[in-house]
Design a protein around this nucleic acid. Structure first.
Lengths: 100, 100
DNA sequence: TTGACATATCGGATAATATCGATATATTAT
DNA sequence: ATAATATATCGATATTATCCGATATGTCAA
């Protein structure tokens, strides 16, 4: 866990929004065809649909969140599914509440 | 509380260090003359002494932490004393642990 | 009032980040 | 093999952050 990378990843409105959407993927991305978003996560194009940003920017943002360890990625076929890494989120919360 | 400003403030090694030092000011800045650092905080020049950074940079970093609400400042005479805002730190920890 | 000192602010050079369009890569369907 | 689709990566540019030296402001002491 690298606090600097984590806080940088969190220093952006869109990336915070992505994390919030991923708390309840079935609410925000309900109609996902080939996989249950509850289990596997949400694919890049669904984020892209909801954001006024290019595909490349959305992909980059997800990569930033992943490098920080805040989300995990799973490739299935053509799609990459992202979901929250709750353990890391809790770790960061504890770091803030106790260590920092 | 503005999460973006807070996370930006936390996205810097030196500013994290300042917050950590401020957890135990008497340990890191024990010999402060005109005021008890436990109560009133730590003055800018003591941070400056411990950091390989100019006075202006240190002052700016403390201002960034203050604008984010992570520390509070008290001016007494020529000195400005900074101390942690524990309530805000706890708020951010809760935000991370529950809201985000 | 002047001088000395602590801190804050300003302007600038350089480095990092944001964001895009274009393109590359990987996978599946035909 | 080719085409279509999803995602990732690259290169460019614009914005933002870092960090400095110089200077301004505020406070106290003589």
């Amino acid at each position: 866990m690298n606090p600097i990378d984590i806080f940088k990843a969190l220093s952006n409105e869109t990336r915070l929004q992505i994390l919030i959407w991923l708390k309840e993927p079935e609410v925000y991305f309900g109609t996902q065809k080939s996989a249950d978003c509850k289990d596997v996560g949400v694919c890049v194009s669904l984020f892209h649909q909801r954001l006024q940003l290019t595909q490349s920017t959305v992909s980059e943002y997800l990569a930033i969140l992943q490098r920080a360890g805040l989300v995990t990625a799973t490739r299935i076929g053509k799609w990459t599914y992202y979901k929250r890494n709750e353990e890391m989120l809790q770790k960061v919360a504890r770091y803030l509440g106790h260590d920092l």
